[in-house]
Design a protein around this nucleic acid. Structure first.
Lengths: 337, 337
DNA sequence: TTGTATGCGTTATCAT
DNA sequence: ATGATAACGCATACAA
């Protein structure tokens, strides 16, 4: 397992250590002749740069750490694509860490990345405290995505969840619904804003008396349980707005279990527009978060700090859109209040 | 962004560099008094070990790289859980790399991990050539999971896909089906064995004349297209066995699009038993791969090589099981051949 | 128990 | 264009 070093490459090529280093870093001022010599020696030995030594000496890693709140949530997994594409272009490698849906899990991954001295960190859907993240920002460039923030220290990229939630409610109201319940996302990222958007929109429509929120947690089972709670009430909702697609799927199942038809008896609207919602078997009406764009913007912000030395924080909001699929429909007159 | 070093901690605590190092590594032979001194100084400075320097000096990283063929495929994402849990116990940190569903993407991640000199690599669902993986095994301990292998150099953990596919066919035959088609996984990991198990089982049941395979690629859209192909044939299948849950979901949708009822008109069986299949709205009959066990075994094998210095390769097969849900049912007499 | 000195595999500065 | 050589931040024999 002992790996060849530059020293050995140098000896084999009959040149100095420094020359090998120059070749490995694609330096311009090296004669073609010696460059070939070095390259051949390296290939013969199966030399591979030791990134630990390189990073230690150069004081930079060209590596970005991405910590996902939950690798199982398609929303976070889909943000990765934009991040990876953008960093590939910029010449950075990206390492992924799983936060295991807990603040401590996220904190551990951030600590690990800091110990590795990564050049930057993107935290997707962080549930850990903002102050902990700010503490980490003393050591590296860090931007949060999918979570609102007004921090003076770190950048954020986020969907305008308040208006996203409003879109969901507006859509349902247009379809004639009044008894619109909300399954929220508990303490998850974005849950608070969606809750607020829901309440505001209901109030604006003169439906403040109909506001009903059941507690969820961004998981399918959480959505199932929350829907149970909603169905057992005397005044069953004719429509449910769930804080994300996963919980919408859970609610959908619970409603169908009760012998009700979606959307005829109950309309359901999700949030995120993940691949799950797009699955045609589900075909969930939902609020789209432009995941690729979120990822790319996050990358742009860390690059701005890295290359342009920007120091003031920026908070970017992207606009959600409603995706009308098959789980929502006009309220049938028989079911009206 | 300049980080404090041990040197600074040492000066502040009024002790030697080496003493600080001992404290940081939780060495036993340090007086409580000085240990406190060092710990306090470190805390005051916000000292954080530089893992690059530490790993360089100690020649080990206590880090494992996990490369996922596709972070979006729930099967791979779910293997991570077992891996992380097992490595947490063993005191290793795990970094995740996304192979982006391509051999070159996987190769790049492996190269990155090798440059980081990780102590071991677990590759889940690798589609890159076995010889490339073997080449990497000269530099670190590497085990593949979810992909068959008979390599003399590297370990593998895999579900017995041949018998898993057989289970699916046996199940359908028991339900009275004869015209059982297969949507395969193309060049994906495990696809070949599942194709073989399907053919063998069909032959064993005297149904070799009914063998029909449509090309898929382990994605939902691939399953949808393959199902289209199957439905357009003169002799429509009464049952479809898809090589994974994702393509089964795609097929399910295509069948329903055709106005057919699942399972009344067409039964569908998937493979993997991911959270997707378990989603009650889908409720897919499928073949279970024990993902947690697969992950834990993979970890065990790299630890055996790391700690017990095992050098001969081991190939472990775990047994699949059939999970009977709602997408398969007895063939109705009217539809019989 | 604590300190000194050397090396880990690079990068980078300064000569030549 | 190429070569010495001093960092980089830490671990680790070895000495005290």
């Amino acid at each position: 397992m002992a790996q060849p070093t530059m020293q050995q490459v140098a000896e084999r090529a009959g040149v100095s250590l420094a020359l090998v280093s120059l070749v490995m870093r694609q330096a311009p001022n090296v004669s073609d002749y010696r460059r070939q010599l070095v390259l051949e020696a390296a290939a013969e030995l199966g030399y591979r740069p030791n990134v630990l030594a390189r990073n230690l000496a150069s004081r930079q890693t060209s590596t970005i750490g991405v910590v996902l709140n939950d690798i199982h949530n398609p929303f976070f997994a889909e943000i990765i694509d934009g991040i990876q594409a953008a960093f590939d272009e910029a010449g950075y490698r990206v390492l992924i860490g799983n936060g295991k849906r807990s603040p401590s899990g996220e904190a551990e991954m951030i600590e690990t990345f800091l110990q590795f001295r990564v050049d930057g960190i993107i935290s997707a859907g962080a549930t850990m405290s903002m102050s902990s993240i700010e503490a980490a920002s003393e050591s590296t460039k860090i931007v949060v995505v999918g979570r609102s923030s007004r921090s003076q220290l770190i950048d954020s990229v986020n969907t305008d969840d308040v208006s996203g939630a409003r879109m969901a409610v507006d859509h349902l109201v247009e379809l004639g619904h009044h008894r619109i319940a909300h399954i929220d996302g508990g303490t998850g990222a974005g849950a608070e804003a969606r809750r607020r958007g829901y309440s505001e929109a209901m109030t604006d429509h003169g439906l403040s008396a109909e506001i009903v929120t059941a507690g969820g947690d961004f998981t399918e089972s959480g959505g199932y349980l929350a829907a149970s709670e909603l169905l057992s009430q005397s005044n069953q909702p004719t429509a449910i707005f769930a804080a994300n697609d996963l919980s919408a799927a859970g609610a959908l199942h619970r409603v169908e279990d009760a012998g009700l038809i979606v959307p005829d008896d109950v309309s359901i609207v999700g949030y995120d527009n993940t691949a799950l919602a797009a699955m045609q078997h589900l075909s969930l009406t939902t609020v789209n978060q432009p995941r690729d764009e979120l990822g790319r913007l996050a990358v742009r912000f860390v690059l701005e700090r890295l290359r342009d030395k920007r120091t003031d924080s920026v908070h970017h909001m992207v606009a959600p859109t409603l995706v009308n699929r098959k789980t929502s429909s006009r309220l049938t007159t028989g079911a009206a209040t």
